[in-house]
Every structure is written in structure tokens, then in C-alpha cells.
Design a protein around this nucleic acid. Structure first.
Length: 428
DNA sequence: TGGGCACCT
DNA sequence: AGGTGCC
């Protein structure tokens, strides 16, 4: 039987920060989302204070002022690099790694006898910590859903000491499923918990025992797959990480509510360019560009407006200029005065593989030459931005201090990816 | 009071 | 198109 492991980093963003700031060990530390909006990573100490995931930063600022907690802005360059390092270690010590998210990786776990299995899992657990400084938990099982469940147990139950391997159909597994709340099952969200409890399904075990056909009929095929996976029958494949995205979205809250058209246009242009970069990176072309705006839905005192509009491109393209042109048109058509916008963004839709693009009947040698020039210009821009840092070369006129610049008051250094931000060691 | 993806209905 | 779920 083939087995799969799930390696999940503990409080990942907080752990990354602690690697370079050991003084944060033992402290209540949280990391905030973009724009310092809400809490997205928590140390155990901050969890112990009863502060939930997703808490808005303003609700806990008083604890910061009292010195009881530390809140950091998110430093994705650091976390991305640390994630790659964790993955490298796992690759060295395993038969294959499939990244699932920035802090979780599935690992192939084939061909181990029972006693070697745990030992191997412990080795991964130990080596990642040793080489990267990041603490992880490991769950091993015949299916991804059970591996997630095992991982959760490894995190929650101290006796496992960070590693839990389960097999279907043994008493320990059964006990674990009975103890596991539905909301802790991968693929079961708040909504489903409510609906399932109405028909008497309250634990992971109940769902595993339910008739799959009934689950499919009353809920969905995805939940049926989850139920089967809980029984040890694999039916969830992972999206291949190398598959190109089907659409690309770039969006961000403005730093404050704004109705200034030129500021908004500047932000939308920024998103259009970022989107085009992502598009070129995965070697796709877009056939349509969608622009959206949003007012703040929590402000009942203000008029609400959340328009969006997709504009078709003349031909599939990855040229930032064409994408920006389309985005500009879309924006002009949806923008209305009299609203204070909170957020805006650009989606690139109907993506196709750049290599398999059908030659259009309208193509002429002239447009061929255009395309070559476009590709040269775009690849030079991408090269500069990737070597010298994002935003080195931009289209259009820069406007420093624009309202849409993000808030990030407690940003740490990019210790592992920028020479000028390397940590310094001092002898005392 | 985040951002970004996929899938289902 | 809108909702749900995941991280």
C-alpha cells in the first residue's frame, strides 16, 4: 500500500521570524496580513491568550501597547525563501515532494515496513528543524485526507511528539476518527458542519461510516471523495504544482478609503503589470482582462458599490502595455464618483498556453515583428525586476506616497535573500 | 477586517 | 455568477 506524508510547519510565519530573532522565542507573537489588516499567523503563546485567527489588528493594538504581544508585518520574501529551504531538505531525505502551500508539503512515503515508517518520519521532523530552524509536524497515512488528520493529531496531542502515522482499520485510527471534530477534516468547512449535523454526522468517524452515495446525492462529489478518503480509499489528487494557473488575480486593499480616480488608476495599473508578469512567468497569454472595485462592506454608513467588468483583448497577449490599455478602459467604464473605494484589482482570464497559440488569420509579417519586439521588451523588464528587485522598471509615471501604498509598520529584514539585509553577528 | 486560487451549483 | 473551502 502506498502512503503519503504531510509535513506542516508549526506557526510558519512566526517560526520564520524567530529563526532570525531568537528573542521572540517564548513570546506571544503574531504576523499580520497585507496592509497590517488582520492576524494570519500565531505563536502558541498568542493562541493561549485566546486570540483567534483572522482577528483585526485594531482589536488587539492595546495588547501591543501594553507590551503583552508582538505583531509583525508579513515578510513574504523571507517566508517564501524559508519554504524553499524546507522543501530542499525534504527532497534530500525523501522519494518525492509535492508542495501544497507555503507551509505544507506532501511527501511520498512508499516502501517502508511498519517499524521503519515512524523512524523515517522522525528523521524528516528532525532534519528540517536542524537545517532550517523551522519546527514541523509530520502526519502519515494512506490518503491525503487522513495524512492531514494525522498531522493535526501530531500537532495537538503531545504524546505523538510531532509525528503521527496511521493505518486504516486499526483501533487507534478508529479512536482518532471518533475524537476528530468534523470541522477539523480537510474539505469540511463551517457550512458543511452545520448541514451534516442535521443528519446526525458529527465526527470524522460518522462521515467515514456514512453511505458515500447518499453523501454524493445530498451534498457533492467532493464531500463524497472526502468521506472515501477517511476510509483509506485514495481519491483526491493534488493539482500539479507545475500546471499553469487557469486565471491570475492581483488585487490589494488601498491603504485607505479613496475616491481619487488617478490614484485608483495608478493602483490598477500596478496590478495589471504584476498580473502580466505572472502571466509571462507561466508562459501563458490572456484573452480577457477584468477589473473590479469594492467599497468597504463593513461600513454600513457609506453607499456600497462593487462593480467589475471584463474586456476582451484584440488577440491573446502577455504584453503589459496591451493589458494595461484594456484594464484602463475597463476601469473608466466602472468607476463612479460618490463612492469611497476600499479595494481594487485585475484578473487575467481565458488563459492559453503561449506555445500553442493558434496563428491568427490576420497575422502578417508586420505583426510578427511587433510580437518579437514586444517579447524582447517584456523579457528585459522581467529580467531587471527579478534581478534588481520588484518594481525596478515600471510602465508609466511613479507617484510616491500614493494612497494605495500598503501599510506595513513592523516589517522585518529579508534576512536570507538580500545581501544588504543579512543578519549581523556580534561578539559580546 | 488579506490575497489568491480551485471547484461546485 | 455566486458560494464554499483551503492556506
Amino acid at each position: 500500500m502506498s502512503l503519503i506524508g504531510l509535513v506542516d510547519c508549526n506557526s510558519f510565519y512566526v517560526s520564520c521570524e524567530r529563526v532570525f530573532q531568537p528573542r521572540l522565542d517564548g513570546q506571544a507573537v503574531g504576523v499580520l496580513s497585507n496592509n497590517d489588516g488582520c492576524l494570519i499567523a500565531r505563536s502558541n503563546e498568542i493562541k493561549a491568550l485566546g486570540i483567534e485567527m483572522g482577528t483585526p489588528a485594531f482589536e488587539i493594538q492595546h495588547l501591543v501597547r501594553q507590551g503583552r504581544i508582538h505583531l509583525l508585518s508579513s515578510n513574504y520574501e523571507l517566508y517564501g525563501d524559508m519554504s524553499a529551504r524546507v522543501q530542499d531538505v525534504l527532497e534530500e531525505y525523501s522519494a518525492g515532494v509535492e508542495p501544497y502551500s507555503i507551509d505544507e508539503m506532501f511527501v511520498r512515503f512508499d516502501g517502508f515496513a511498519n517499524d521503519q515508517l515512524l523512524e523515517h518520519a522522525r528523521q524528516l521532523h528532525r532534519k528540517v528543524r536542524q537545517y532550517t530552524g523551522i519546527p514541523v509536524c509530520v502526519g502519515v497515512a494512506p490518503t491525503r485526507t487522513l495524512a492531514k488528520l494525522a498531522n493535526r493529531a501530531a500537532k495537538k496531542i503531545p504524546a505523538y511528539r510531532g509525528v503521527c502515522a496511521i493505518r486504516p482499520d486499526n483501533r487507534e485510527t478508529q479512536a482518532l476518527l471518533k475524537k476528530t471534530e468534523l470541522s477539523d477534516v480537510w474539505g469540511v468547512g463551517r457550512r458543511l458542519v452545520g448541514r451534516l449535523s442535521l443528519i446526525g454526522i458529527k465526527s470524522a468517524w460518522d462521515l467515514a461510516q456514512a453511505d458515500p452515495k447518499r453523501i454524493r446525492r445530498q451534498f457533492s462529489v467532493t464531500l463524497e471523495r472526502t468521506a472515501l478518503e477517511l476510509r483509506g480509499i485514495p481519491c483526491i489528487e493534488l493539482n500539479d504544482f507545475h500546471e499553469p494557473r487557469q486565471r491570475i488575480m492581483t488585487s490589494r486593499s488601498f491603504g485607505k478609503l479613496t475616491n481619487d480616480f488617478s490614484e485608483i488608476r495608478e493602483a490598477i495599473r500596478q496590478h495589471g503589470q504584476r498580473g502580466a508578469e505572472k502571466l509571462r512567468r507561466q508562459n501563458s497569454l490572456a484573452r480577457a482582462v477584468l477589473v473590479f472595485l469594492k467599497t468597504n462592506p463593513f461600513r454600513n454608513d457609506l453607499p456600497q458599490y462593487s462593480p467589475s467588468l471584463a474586456v476582451e483583448l484584440y488577440r491573446p497577449t502577455d504584453d503589459s502595455r496591451e493589458i494595461l490599455h484594456a484594464a484602463g478602459q475597463a476601469l473608466q467604464r466602472i468607476y463612479r464618483q460618490g463612492y469611497r473605494y476600499q479595494k481594487g484589482g485585475v484578473m487575467l482570464l481565458d488563459l492559453i498556453d503561449a506555445n500553442r497559440q493558434q496563428l491568427s488569420l490576420l497575422d502578417t509579417p508586420q505583426s510578427d515583428a511587433d510580437r518579437n519586439r514586444s517579447q524582447k521588451l517584456m523579457s528585459i523588464m522581467d529580467e531587471l525586476n527579478s534581478r534588481m528587485g520588484r518594481g525596478t522598471v515600471k510602465l508609466g509615471t511613479p507617484s510616491p506616497g500614493a494612497a494605495w501604498h500598503l501599510r506595513c509598520d513592523n516589517l522585518t529584514q529579508r534576512y536570507s535573500t538580500r545581501w544588504e539585509e543579512l543578519p549581523a553577528a556580534r561578539a559580546t
